[in-house]
Design a protein around this nucleic acid. Structure first.
Lengths: 208, 208
DNA sequence: ACAAAAGTGTTTCCTTTACACCCATGT
DNA sequence: ACATGGGTGTAAAGGAAACACTTTTGT
């Protein structure tokens, strides 16, 4: 019984997922979604949090259960059921070269290698969930730093959806949701400084 | 590792769920969601199908994974992770008095007793999922008999959502989706006979 | 003829989309 | 002064919601 966690972030302008190079068989040297075996005394959610923190001390992360995979032949070592989660991490919280020697790496989701086990399928499902929730929830919160401009938020939406959005319509929609509060203003940019916003604390990520 | 399956149907004008009275501890005599232990050689989906068929030979049922529950204290016997599914069964496929001596019973979801384990929580989540998917999918298929009138379909929607729907708007929406084909006409009713429809085979239940 | 449910269109409102120019700043 | 992204409004189209009467059958 394992918990595998898709850790998504925006890295260098790509929606990316954190993967680990396996150091032992099966599928030695292939990349895989980070996971842990569930301990006897912890919940699935706790196991997911542990999976995240052992791969880099990340906090303030959005975490949601995704799906459970249990084909009997999915792991050659024997019967291993995987409960998958997905997590969102703001770009400013990550360290780009996790681990130093490339045992842990960020991959743009559009350029994934063949992964260990059924992990390609898990990643695909995670991306699908992320896209569909973007339309009807404020899940993008999880990928943004504490404070950000509307243009930055829009870029995040565009990266996940893979399409451009009209600037005026985007701003109309976001402001109509009443999720944001002004927190200041950019300084030192070589252009007009943007107003910065953060998410209102009393508005949780909503739905499902 | 168990798979528990919420089996929903419309029974006597109520959205209802099939529950089993437990014959042994823990929670002896309380009602619980039917489930099975996952065998070493079967997938989770297969275990879910098995759970359904052992509690009454049901076929042509809609089955979807719901959520996995894994609090370490959720079962006093030890560590039991439950992968829950939900299934939809048309009313004409069920037998109203399953088992005969009330070990298996249909409960309207609005009148649930206190259930064994964390099963109240599982049922709540299932109802929520059913409601939310009704809005953007053709999931109601699963609760309808082979052939039905638009009014019957509307009643199913209303039962699940718990609110009335305007007849003309409902029919406009359904017909615009182009999911149905005419299959005949009611006979022998003491009123104007309704046109009967079935779902087109090439249109699968869509989304998520 | 009456009861009971089936069936049918139009208008209003709101949401979504398309679209182009001026503004504030740093260099 | 110019380059760069920030910021703003309006009109048209499409989808959702409100609303009431006629039709067909069995008794």
């Amino acid at each position: 019984m394992t918990v595998d966690v898709l850790i998504f972030s925006i890295v260098g302008g790509d929606l990316s997922v954190l993967l680990i190079r396996r150091s032992s068989p099966p599928h030695q040297k292939m990349f895989a979604v980070p996971g842990v075996f569930v301990q006897m005394d912890e919940s699935l959610d706790e196991a997911a949090s542990r999976a995240i923190s052992t791969k880099g001390g990340l906090s303030r992360i959005y975490l949601e259960q995704l799906y459970s995979f249990g084909r009997p032949d999915r792991d050659s070592r024997g019967r291993v059921v995987s409960v998958s989660y997905f997590a969102l991490v703001p770009e400013d919280k990550i360290t780009r070269d996790e681990g130093g020697e490339h045992v842990v790496r960020w991959f743009p989701v559009m350029k994934l290698p063949k992964l260990a086990f059924d992990h390609n399928q898990i990643v695909e499902m995670g991306i699908g969930r992320l896209r569909s929730k973007l339309a009807y929830s404020s899940i993008a919160v999880g990928l943004m730093p504490k404070s950000f401009s509307l243009s930055e938020l829009q870029r995040t939406y565009e990266l996940i959806l893979g399409e451009t959005i009209d600037k005026r319509n985007f701003r109309k929609k976001i402001t109509s949701l009443d999720l944001l509060q002004e927190t200041g203003r950019e300084v030192g940019k070589r252009r007009r400084p943007a107003v910065l916003y953060s998410f209102k604390k009393d508005k949780p990520v909503f739905f499902d």
